[in-house]
Design a binder for these strands. Structure first.
Lengths: 242, 242
DNA sequence: GTCAAGAAAATTATCGATATTTTTTATAAC
DNA sequence: GTTATAAAAAATATCGATAATTTTCTTGAC
Protein backbone atom coordinates (compact mmCIF):
# COMPACT_ATOMS: atom_id res chain seq x y z
CA UNK A 1 0.00 0.00 0.00
CA UNK A 2 1.11 3.54 -0.73
CA UNK A 3 2.61 5.47 2.16
CA UNK A 4 0.39 8.47 2.84
CA UNK A 5 1.92 11.94 2.60
CA UNK A 6 2.75 13.61 5.89
CA UNK A 7 0.42 16.55 6.19
CA UNK A 8 2.68 17.91 8.87
CA UNK A 9 5.90 16.07 8.41
CA UNK A 10 7.64 18.29 10.94
CA UNK A 11 5.40 16.97 13.67
CA UNK A 12 6.23 13.35 12.92
CA UNK A 13 9.29 11.61 14.27
CA UNK A 14 11.21 11.85 11.02
CA UNK A 15 14.82 12.58 11.89
CA UNK A 16 15.26 14.65 8.76
CA UNK A 17 12.59 17.11 9.71
CA UNK A 18 14.03 18.00 13.10
CA UNK A 19 13.37 21.61 13.89
CA UNK A 20 11.14 22.20 10.88
CA UNK A 21 8.00 24.02 11.94
CA UNK A 22 6.32 23.84 8.57
CA UNK A 23 6.25 21.42 5.68
CA UNK A 24 7.82 24.18 3.63
CA UNK A 25 10.86 24.29 5.94
CA UNK A 26 11.03 20.53 5.91
CA UNK A 27 11.17 20.46 2.12
CA UNK A 28 13.72 23.27 2.18
CA UNK A 29 16.00 21.38 4.56
CA UNK A 30 15.79 18.15 2.61
CA UNK A 31 16.40 19.84 -0.73
CA UNK A 32 19.26 21.82 0.75
CA UNK A 33 20.89 18.70 2.06
CA UNK A 34 20.46 16.86 -1.22
CA UNK A 35 21.98 19.73 -3.17
CA UNK A 36 24.96 20.18 -0.86
CA UNK A 37 25.62 16.45 -0.71
CA UNK A 38 25.44 16.19 -4.49
CA UNK A 39 22.43 13.85 -4.64
CA UNK A 40 20.92 16.54 -6.82
CA UNK A 41 23.74 17.22 -9.26
CA UNK A 42 25.00 20.74 -10.02
CA UNK A 43 23.24 22.17 -13.05
CA UNK A 44 20.47 19.57 -13.09
CA UNK A 45 16.87 20.56 -13.70
CA UNK A 46 14.52 20.60 -10.71
CA UNK A 47 11.17 19.49 -12.08
CA UNK A 48 8.29 20.34 -9.81
CA UNK A 49 6.15 17.27 -10.48
CA UNK A 50 9.05 14.88 -9.99
CA UNK A 51 10.25 16.49 -6.76
CA UNK A 52 6.65 16.66 -5.54
CA UNK A 53 6.55 12.89 -5.61
CA UNK A 54 9.99 12.51 -4.03
CA UNK A 55 9.47 14.85 -1.11
CA UNK A 56 5.73 14.28 -0.74
CA UNK A 57 4.60 17.91 -0.75
CA UNK A 58 2.26 20.02 -2.85
CA UNK A 59 3.54 22.07 -5.76
CA UNK A 60 3.10 25.45 -4.08
CA UNK A 61 4.93 24.31 -0.98
CA UNK A 62 7.71 22.92 -3.10
CA UNK A 63 8.00 26.12 -5.11
CA UNK A 64 8.24 28.07 -1.89
CA UNK A 65 11.04 25.81 -0.67
CA UNK A 66 12.90 26.23 -3.96
CA UNK A 67 12.44 29.99 -3.76
CA UNK A 68 13.96 29.86 -0.29
CA UNK A 69 17.00 28.11 -1.74
CA UNK A 70 17.40 30.99 -4.16
CA UNK A 71 18.51 33.08 -1.18
CA UNK A 72 21.35 30.65 -0.52
CA UNK A 73 22.24 30.69 -4.22
CA UNK A 74 22.05 26.90 -4.18
CA UNK A 75 19.28 27.08 -6.77
CA UNK A 76 18.79 29.33 -9.77
CA UNK A 77 15.50 30.16 -11.46
CA UNK A 78 14.24 31.66 -14.67
CA UNK A 79 10.71 32.90 -15.18
CA UNK A 80 8.49 30.40 -17.05
CA UNK A 81 11.47 28.07 -17.38
CA UNK A 82 11.70 26.72 -13.85
CA UNK A 83 14.43 25.87 -11.37
CA UNK A 84 17.91 24.33 -11.58
CA UNK A 85 20.54 23.30 -9.09
CA UNK A 86 23.14 26.07 -9.17
CA UNK A 87 26.12 24.98 -11.26
CA UNK A 88 29.62 24.77 -9.81
CA UNK A 89 32.97 25.73 -11.29
CA UNK A 90 36.57 26.27 -10.29
CA UNK A 91 36.23 30.00 -10.97
CA UNK A 92 33.26 30.17 -8.66
CA UNK A 93 35.08 28.24 -5.95
CA UNK A 94 37.96 30.69 -6.15
CA UNK A 95 35.58 33.60 -5.80
CA UNK A 96 33.79 31.91 -2.90
CA UNK A 97 37.06 31.12 -1.17
CA UNK A 98 38.35 34.65 -1.43
CA UNK A 99 35.13 36.17 -0.11
CA UNK A 100 34.76 33.54 2.53
CA UNK A 101 38.19 34.24 3.97
CA UNK A 102 37.28 37.88 4.16
CA UNK A 103 33.96 37.30 5.91
CA UNK A 104 35.30 34.60 8.21
CA UNK A 105 38.24 36.64 9.46
CA UNK A 106 36.10 39.75 9.80
CA UNK A 107 33.65 37.81 11.96
CA UNK A 108 36.39 36.11 13.94
CA UNK A 109 38.24 39.33 14.68
CA UNK A 110 35.13 40.99 16.02
CA UNK A 111 34.16 37.89 17.93
CA UNK A 112 37.57 37.77 19.63
CA UNK A 113 37.11 41.41 20.58
CA UNK A 114 33.63 40.97 22.03
CA UNK A 115 33.54 37.39 23.30
CA UNK A 116 32.78 36.62 26.93
CA UNK A 117 33.15 33.51 29.10
CA UNK A 118 30.08 31.84 27.63
CA UNK A 119 31.45 32.33 24.15
CA UNK A 120 34.71 30.65 25.15
CA UNK A 121 32.82 27.74 26.68
CA UNK A 122 30.80 27.36 23.48
CA UNK A 123 33.96 27.02 21.40
CA UNK A 124 35.52 24.43 23.68
CA UNK A 125 32.30 22.42 23.74
CA UNK A 126 31.89 22.51 19.95
CA UNK A 127 35.52 21.50 19.48
CA UNK A 128 35.01 18.58 21.82
CA UNK A 129 31.91 17.39 19.98
CA UNK A 130 33.76 17.68 16.68
CA UNK A 131 36.75 15.73 18.02
CA UNK A 132 34.51 12.90 19.14
CA UNK A 133 33.03 12.41 15.69
CA UNK A 134 36.47 12.69 14.09
CA UNK A 135 37.57 9.65 16.08
CA UNK A 136 34.95 7.65 14.24
CA UNK A 137 35.56 9.28 10.84
CA UNK A 138 38.43 6.99 9.87
CA UNK A 139 36.59 3.78 10.68
CA UNK A 140 33.09 4.49 9.37
CA UNK A 141 33.59 7.44 7.02
CA UNK A 142 30.33 7.29 5.11
CA UNK A 143 28.13 6.86 8.18
CA UNK A 144 29.44 9.86 10.11
CA UNK A 145 30.19 12.21 7.22
CA UNK A 146 26.96 14.13 7.80
CA UNK A 147 27.62 14.33 11.51
CA UNK A 148 31.11 15.63 10.85
CA UNK A 149 29.76 18.35 8.55
CA UNK A 150 27.23 19.46 11.18
CA UNK A 151 29.79 19.58 13.96
CA UNK A 152 32.40 21.25 11.82
CA UNK A 153 29.89 23.96 11.00
CA UNK A 154 28.91 24.28 14.65
CA UNK A 155 32.56 24.65 15.68
CA UNK A 156 33.20 27.47 13.25
CA UNK A 157 29.93 29.12 14.20
CA UNK A 158 30.82 28.95 17.88
CA UNK A 159 34.08 30.74 17.16
CA UNK A 160 32.34 33.70 15.52
CA UNK A 161 29.26 33.70 17.75
CA UNK A 162 30.31 36.92 19.48
CA UNK A 163 30.49 38.90 16.24
CA UNK A 164 27.84 41.60 16.44
CA UNK A 165 27.66 42.36 12.74
CA UNK A 166 24.68 40.42 11.52
CA UNK A 167 25.59 41.10 7.88
CA UNK A 168 29.08 39.71 8.30
CA UNK A 169 27.59 36.62 9.88
CA UNK A 170 24.89 36.38 7.20
CA UNK A 171 27.30 36.54 4.28
CA UNK A 172 29.74 34.24 6.00
CA UNK A 173 26.99 31.64 6.47
CA UNK A 174 25.96 31.78 2.80
CA UNK A 175 29.55 31.34 1.66
CA UNK A 176 30.11 28.54 4.14
CA UNK A 177 27.23 26.51 2.72
CA UNK A 178 28.48 27.24 -0.79
CA UNK A 179 31.92 25.86 -0.09
CA UNK A 180 30.38 22.92 1.72
CA UNK A 181 29.21 21.69 -1.68
CA UNK A 182 32.72 21.78 -3.03
CA UNK A 183 34.17 20.20 0.07
CA UNK A 184 31.89 17.19 -0.39
CA UNK A 185 33.47 16.52 -3.73
CA UNK A 186 36.97 16.60 -2.33
CA UNK A 187 36.24 14.95 1.02
CA UNK A 188 37.79 11.58 0.25
CA UNK A 189 40.88 13.04 -1.38
CA UNK A 190 41.33 15.48 1.49
CA UNK A 191 41.09 12.83 4.14
CA UNK A 192 44.50 11.87 5.43
CA UNK A 193 46.37 14.40 3.36
CA UNK A 194 45.50 17.17 5.80
CA UNK A 195 45.34 17.12 9.54
CA UNK A 196 42.08 19.00 9.85
CA UNK A 197 41.87 18.26 13.54
CA UNK A 198 45.20 19.94 14.19
CA UNK A 199 44.10 22.96 12.14
CA UNK A 200 40.96 23.30 14.21
CA UNK A 201 42.85 22.96 17.45
CA UNK A 202 45.33 25.64 16.42
CA UNK A 203 42.48 27.98 15.47
CA UNK A 204 40.78 27.37 18.78
CA UNK A 205 43.92 27.97 20.81
CA UNK A 206 44.74 31.21 19.03
CA UNK A 207 41.14 32.34 19.40
CA UNK A 208 40.95 31.61 23.12
CA UNK A 209 44.33 33.33 23.56
CA UNK A 210 42.68 36.34 21.89
CA UNK A 211 45.42 36.38 19.30
CA UNK A 212 43.31 37.74 16.44
CA UNK A 213 46.11 38.02 13.89
CA UNK A 214 47.20 34.42 14.34
CA UNK A 215 43.64 33.07 14.51
CA UNK A 216 42.77 34.86 11.27
CA UNK A 217 45.88 33.67 9.49
CA UNK A 218 45.17 30.09 10.52
CA UNK A 219 41.55 30.45 9.42
CA UNK A 220 42.62 31.75 6.03
CA UNK A 221 44.98 28.81 5.59
CA UNK A 222 42.22 26.47 6.70
CA UNK A 223 39.84 27.86 4.09
CA UNK A 224 42.51 27.93 1.38
CA UNK A 225 43.07 24.23 1.89
CA UNK A 226 39.56 23.50 0.67
CA UNK A 227 40.35 25.25 -2.57
CA UNK A 228 43.74 23.60 -2.84
CA UNK A 229 42.53 20.05 -2.28
CA UNK A 230 39.67 20.57 -4.67
CA UNK A 231 41.84 21.97 -7.43
CA UNK A 232 44.48 19.35 -6.75
CA UNK A 233 41.85 16.70 -7.31
CA UNK A 234 41.01 18.18 -10.67
CA UNK A 235 44.70 18.69 -11.48
CA UNK A 236 44.23 22.33 -12.28
CA UNK A 237 46.90 24.85 -11.25
CA UNK A 238 45.59 27.65 -9.07
CA UNK A 239 46.98 30.77 -7.47
CA UNK A 240 45.70 31.62 -4.01
CA UNK A 241 45.16 35.33 -3.68
CA UNK A 242 46.13 36.98 -0.43
CA UNK B 1 -17.49 47.59 -11.93
CA UNK B 2 -14.60 45.75 -10.35
CA UNK B 3 -11.35 45.73 -12.29
CA UNK B 4 -10.54 42.13 -13.16
CA UNK B 5 -7.28 40.67 -11.87
CA UNK B 6 -4.49 40.49 -14.44
CA UNK B 7 -3.84 36.82 -15.03
CA UNK B 8 -0.54 37.78 -16.55
CA UNK B 9 0.13 41.23 -15.29
CA UNK B 10 3.56 41.20 -16.80
CA UNK B 11 2.07 41.00 -20.26
CA UNK B 12 -0.11 44.07 -19.77
CA UNK B 13 1.13 47.59 -20.32
CA UNK B 14 1.40 48.33 -16.61
CA UNK B 15 4.51 50.42 -16.07
CA UNK B 16 5.19 48.78 -12.73
CA UNK B 17 5.44 45.34 -14.23
CA UNK B 18 8.09 46.22 -16.78
CA UNK B 19 10.39 43.29 -17.26
CA UNK B 20 8.37 40.95 -15.07
CA UNK B 21 7.95 37.63 -16.82
CA UNK B 22 5.66 36.11 -14.26
CA UNK B 23 2.96 37.35 -11.92
CA UNK B 24 5.22 36.24 -9.10
CA UNK B 25 7.98 38.60 -10.24
CA UNK B 26 5.45 41.35 -10.70
CA UNK B 27 4.26 40.98 -7.12
CA UNK B 28 7.87 40.80 -5.95
CA UNK B 29 8.77 44.04 -7.70
CA UNK B 30 5.75 45.89 -6.40
CA UNK B 31 6.22 44.68 -2.84
CA UNK B 32 9.92 45.51 -3.02
CA UNK B 33 9.21 49.00 -4.16
CA UNK B 34 6.57 49.56 -1.49
CA UNK B 35 8.91 48.33 1.24
CA UNK B 36 11.88 50.41 0.12
CA UNK B 37 9.74 53.51 -0.33
CA UNK B 38 8.20 53.05 3.10
CA UNK B 39 4.60 52.57 1.92
CA UNK B 40 4.82 49.32 3.85
CA UNK B 41 6.28 50.48 7.16
CA UNK B 42 9.29 48.76 8.76
CA UNK B 43 8.18 46.11 11.23
CA UNK B 44 4.59 45.98 9.99
CA UNK B 45 2.78 42.69 9.52
CA UNK B 46 2.31 41.43 5.98
CA UNK B 47 -1.04 39.67 6.00
CA UNK B 48 -1.55 37.37 3.05
CA UNK B 49 -5.27 37.97 2.56
CA UNK B 50 -4.92 41.73 2.71
CA UNK B 51 -1.97 41.88 0.30
CA UNK B 52 -3.76 39.44 -1.98
CA UNK B 53 -6.50 42.00 -2.49
CA UNK B 54 -4.03 44.88 -2.89
CA UNK B 55 -1.78 43.27 -5.45
CA UNK B 56 -4.43 41.11 -7.09
CA UNK B 57 -2.63 37.78 -6.95
CA UNK B 58 -3.34 34.37 -5.45
CA UNK B 59 -2.04 33.41 -2.04
CA UNK B 60 0.57 30.95 -3.27
CA UNK B 61 1.96 33.46 -5.73
CA UNK B 62 2.06 36.10 -3.03
CA UNK B 63 3.84 33.78 -0.61
CA UNK B 64 6.41 33.04 -3.27
CA UNK B 65 7.01 36.74 -3.81
CA UNK B 66 7.41 37.28 -0.07
CA UNK B 67 9.82 34.36 0.12
CA UNK B 68 11.82 36.00 -2.65
CA UNK B 69 12.05 39.15 -0.55
CA UNK B 70 13.53 37.08 2.24
CA UNK B 71 16.68 36.80 0.12
CA UNK B 72 16.99 40.59 0.07
CA UNK B 73 16.38 40.66 3.83
CA UNK B 74 13.64 43.18 3.21
CA UNK B 75 11.15 40.77 4.76
CA UNK B 76 11.42 38.44 7.71
CA UNK B 77 9.36 35.31 8.32
CA UNK B 78 8.56 32.93 11.13
CA UNK B 79 6.99 29.52 10.62
CA UNK B 80 3.23 29.48 11.34
CA UNK B 81 3.42 33.15 12.28
CA UNK B 82 3.76 34.74 8.87
CA UNK B 83 5.70 37.60 7.30
CA UNK B 84 6.79 41.07 8.41
CA UNK B 85 8.54 43.99 6.80
CA UNK B 86 12.12 43.85 8.12
CA UNK B 87 12.56 46.42 10.90
CA UNK B 88 15.12 49.20 10.64
CA UNK B 89 17.44 50.64 13.26
CA UNK B 90 20.45 52.91 13.60
CA UNK B 91 22.59 49.95 14.64
CA UNK B 92 21.58 48.08 11.51
CA UNK B 93 22.29 51.09 9.33
CA UNK B 94 25.77 51.34 10.80
CA UNK B 95 26.38 47.68 10.10
CA UNK B 96 25.03 48.02 6.56
CA UNK B 97 27.14 51.10 5.91
CA UNK B 98 30.34 49.48 7.09
CA UNK B 99 29.79 46.36 5.00
CA UNK B 100 28.58 48.32 2.04
CA UNK B 101 31.74 50.40 1.95
CA UNK B 102 33.76 47.23 1.97
CA UNK B 103 31.82 45.57 -0.86
CA UNK B 104 31.55 48.74 -2.93
CA UNK B 105 35.27 49.53 -2.82
CA UNK B 106 36.18 45.90 -3.40
CA UNK B 107 33.99 45.86 -6.51
CA UNK B 108 35.22 49.25 -7.69
CA UNK B 109 38.89 48.37 -7.30
CA UNK B 110 38.49 45.22 -9.35
CA UNK B 111 36.35 47.01 -11.90
CA UNK B 112 39.02 49.70 -12.37
CA UNK B 113 41.58 46.95 -12.86
CA UNK B 114 39.54 45.04 -15.45
CA UNK B 115 37.42 47.69 -17.18
CA UNK B 116 37.60 48.19 -20.95
CA UNK B 117 36.38 50.95 -23.29
CA UNK B 118 32.77 49.78 -23.18
CA UNK B 119 32.84 49.89 -19.40
CA UNK B 120 34.07 53.49 -19.49
CA UNK B 121 31.34 54.43 -21.97
CA UNK B 122 28.74 52.85 -19.71
CA UNK B 123 29.82 54.98 -16.78
CA UNK B 124 29.78 58.21 -18.76
CA UNK B 125 26.33 57.39 -20.17
CA UNK B 126 24.88 56.50 -16.75
CA UNK B 127 26.33 59.68 -15.26
CA UNK B 128 24.75 61.71 -18.02
CA UNK B 129 21.33 60.13 -17.49
CA UNK B 130 21.64 60.76 -13.76
CA UNK B 131 22.63 64.39 -14.30
CA UNK B 132 19.60 64.99 -16.49
CA UNK B 133 17.18 63.82 -13.84
CA UNK B 134 19.04 65.80 -11.16
CA UNK B 135 18.28 69.00 -13.08
CA UNK B 136 14.62 68.32 -12.51
CA UNK B 137 15.02 67.13 -8.92
CA UNK B 138 14.96 70.61 -7.39
CA UNK B 139 11.81 71.69 -9.21
CA UNK B 140 9.65 68.57 -9.02
CA UNK B 141 11.23 66.52 -6.25
CA UNK B 142 8.41 64.08 -5.55
CA UNK B 143 7.72 63.26 -9.21
CA UNK B 144 11.27 62.36 -10.16
CA UNK B 145 12.44 60.82 -6.88
CA UNK B 146 11.88 57.31 -8.21
CA UNK B 147 13.67 58.14 -11.43
CA UNK B 148 16.57 59.54 -9.49
CA UNK B 149 16.84 56.38 -7.38
CA UNK B 150 16.87 54.23 -10.53
CA UNK B 151 19.51 56.29 -12.27
CA UNK B 152 21.62 56.64 -9.15
CA UNK B 153 21.64 52.86 -8.84
CA UNK B 154 22.45 52.47 -12.52
CA UNK B 155 25.37 54.88 -12.22
CA UNK B 156 26.93 53.02 -9.33
CA UNK B 157 26.31 49.70 -11.07
CA UNK B 158 27.99 50.96 -14.23
CA UNK B 159 31.07 51.87 -12.23
CA UNK B 160 31.48 48.34 -10.85
CA UNK B 161 30.26 46.52 -13.96
CA UNK B 162 33.74 45.22 -14.76
CA UNK B 163 34.14 43.50 -11.39
CA UNK B 164 34.39 39.77 -12.08
CA UNK B 165 33.58 38.60 -8.57
CA UNK B 166 29.89 37.73 -8.69
CA UNK B 167 29.77 37.37 -4.91
CA UNK B 168 31.15 40.83 -4.34
CA UNK B 169 28.58 42.19 -6.74
CA UNK B 170 25.81 40.11 -5.19
CA UNK B 171 26.47 41.25 -1.63
CA UNK B 172 27.00 44.81 -2.76
CA UNK B 173 23.61 44.80 -4.47
CA UNK B 174 21.83 43.47 -1.38
CA UNK B 175 23.43 46.11 0.82
CA UNK B 176 22.66 48.82 -1.70
CA UNK B 177 18.94 48.06 -1.62
CA UNK B 178 19.09 47.91 2.16
CA UNK B 179 20.55 51.38 2.46
CA UNK B 180 18.11 52.63 -0.14
CA UNK B 181 15.39 52.21 2.47
CA UNK B 182 17.25 54.41 4.90
CA UNK B 183 18.10 56.96 2.27
CA UNK B 184 14.41 57.43 1.50
CA UNK B 185 13.86 58.53 5.06
CA UNK B 186 16.63 61.08 4.92
CA UNK B 187 16.14 62.24 1.34
CA UNK B 188 14.55 65.61 2.10
CA UNK B 189 16.99 66.47 4.85
CA UNK B 190 19.92 65.47 2.67
CA UNK B 191 18.81 67.56 -0.27
CA UNK B 192 20.74 70.82 -0.47
CA UNK B 193 23.01 69.99 2.43
CA UNK B 194 25.18 67.77 0.22
CA UNK B 195 26.24 68.24 -3.34
CA UNK B 196 25.59 64.67 -4.42
CA UNK B 197 26.15 65.56 -8.05
CA UNK B 198 29.66 66.78 -7.33
CA UNK B 199 30.38 63.62 -5.34
CA UNK B 200 29.29 61.46 -8.28
CA UNK B 201 31.35 63.48 -10.72
CA UNK B 202 34.45 63.17 -8.55
CA UNK B 203 33.95 59.40 -8.26
CA UNK B 204 33.53 59.12 -12.01
CA UNK B 205 36.63 61.18 -12.78
CA UNK B 206 38.82 59.22 -10.37
CA UNK B 207 37.44 55.96 -11.76
CA UNK B 208 38.05 56.87 -15.41
CA UNK B 209 41.54 58.07 -14.45
CA UNK B 210 42.03 54.56 -13.00
CA UNK B 211 42.95 56.09 -9.66
CA UNK B 212 41.59 53.27 -7.51
CA UNK B 213 42.71 54.66 -4.15
CA UNK B 214 41.04 58.01 -4.73
CA UNK B 215 37.91 56.51 -6.26
CA UNK B 216 37.51 54.20 -3.28
CA UNK B 217 38.08 56.95 -0.75
CA UNK B 218 35.47 59.12 -2.45
CA UNK B 219 33.06 56.19 -2.58
CA UNK B 220 33.51 55.54 1.13
CA UNK B 221 32.83 59.18 1.91
CA UNK B 222 29.82 59.07 -0.38
CA UNK B 223 28.39 56.08 1.47
CA UNK B 224 29.25 57.51 4.87
CA UNK B 225 27.21 60.59 4.07
CA UNK B 226 24.04 58.51 3.94
CA UNK B 227 24.71 57.35 7.48
CA UNK B 228 25.64 60.84 8.63
CA UNK B 229 22.60 62.59 7.20
CA UNK B 230 20.33 59.88 8.54
CA UNK B 231 21.78 60.03 12.04
CA UNK B 232 21.88 63.80 11.93
CA UNK B 233 18.17 63.77 11.20
CA UNK B 234 17.55 61.65 14.25
CA UNK B 235 20.03 63.74 16.31
CA UNK B 236 21.99 60.69 17.40
CA UNK B 237 25.76 60.93 17.69
CA UNK B 238 27.60 58.35 15.62
CA UNK B 239 31.16 57.34 15.01
CA UNK B 240 32.10 56.40 11.48
CA UNK B 241 34.40 53.41 11.53
CA UNK B 242 37.27 53.35 9.07
C1' DG C 1 -8.89 43.64 38.69
C1' DT C 2 -6.23 39.48 37.23
C1' DC C 3 -5.50 35.18 35.67
C1' DA C 4 -6.96 30.78 33.35
C1' DA C 5 -9.49 28.03 30.30
C1' DG C 6 -12.28 27.43 26.52
C1' DA C 7 -14.70 29.11 22.34
C1' DA C 8 -14.66 31.89 18.30
C1' DA C 9 -12.33 34.41 14.85
C1' DA C 10 -8.56 35.40 12.09
C1' DT C 11 -4.55 33.96 9.80
C1' DT C 12 -1.20 30.89 7.95
C1' DA C 13 0.03 26.74 5.45
C1' DT C 14 -1.08 23.26 2.21
C1' DC C 15 -3.04 21.00 -1.64
C1' DG C 16 -4.49 19.59 -6.18
C1' DA C 17 -6.98 21.39 -10.17
C1' DT C 18 -6.61 24.45 -14.10
C1' DA C 19 -4.58 27.93 -17.20
C1' DT C 20 -0.52 29.25 -19.58
C1' DT C 21 3.86 28.65 -21.53
C1' DT C 22 7.68 26.03 -23.16
C1' DT C 23 9.53 22.02 -25.22
C1' DT C 24 9.28 18.16 -28.09
C1' DT C 25 7.57 15.64 -31.92
C1' DA C 26 5.59 15.21 -36.39
C1' DT C 27 4.81 16.92 -40.94
C1' DA C 28 5.76 19.35 -45.03
C1' DA C 29 8.23 22.37 -48.11
C1' DC C 30 12.52 23.42 -50.25
C1' DG D 1 19.34 16.86 -45.27
C1' DT D 2 17.71 21.27 -43.47
C1' DT D 3 14.55 24.52 -42.16
C1' DA D 4 9.89 26.02 -41.04
C1' DT D 5 5.40 25.26 -39.28
C1' DA D 6 1.86 23.01 -36.70
C1' DA D 7 0.21 19.77 -33.38
C1' DA D 8 0.98 17.25 -29.21
C1' DA D 9 3.10 16.63 -24.91
C1' DA D 10 5.29 18.18 -20.89
C1' DA D 11 6.27 21.49 -17.63
C1' DT D 12 5.56 25.84 -15.20
C1' DA D 13 2.65 29.24 -12.98
C1' DT D 14 -1.53 30.46 -10.78
C1' DC D 15 -5.63 30.11 -8.19
C1' DG D 16 -9.05 29.45 -4.60
C1' DA D 17 -10.66 25.91 -1.42
C1' DT D 18 -9.58 23.51 2.83
C1' DA D 19 -6.84 22.09 6.88
C1' DA D 20 -4.08 23.49 10.71
C1' DT D 21 -2.45 26.90 13.74
C1' DT D 22 -2.27 31.17 16.14
C1' DT D 23 -4.58 35.04 18.03
C1' DT D 24 -8.39 37.30 20.04
C1' DC D 25 -12.47 37.33 22.65
C1' DT D 26 -15.52 35.57 26.29
C1' DT D 27 -16.58 33.63 30.46
C1' DG D 28 -15.81 32.42 35.11
C1' DA D 29 -13.18 31.69 39.30
C1' DC D 30 -10.45 33.86 42.83
Amino acid sequence: MEESAPRMAAASGDALSEGAKTLNEYAYQRLRKDIISGVLAPGSKLRIEHLRATYQVGSSTLREALTLLLADALVIAEGQRGFWVAPISIDDLQDITRMRKMMATLALRESIKNGDDEWEAGIVAAFHRLSRVEDRLAAEAAEVADDWEDRNREFHEAAIAACTSRWTRHFRAILYSQSERYRRFSLVAMNGRRDVHAEHQAIMEATLARNADLACRLTEDHIDNTLLSMTHMLEIPVTVAR
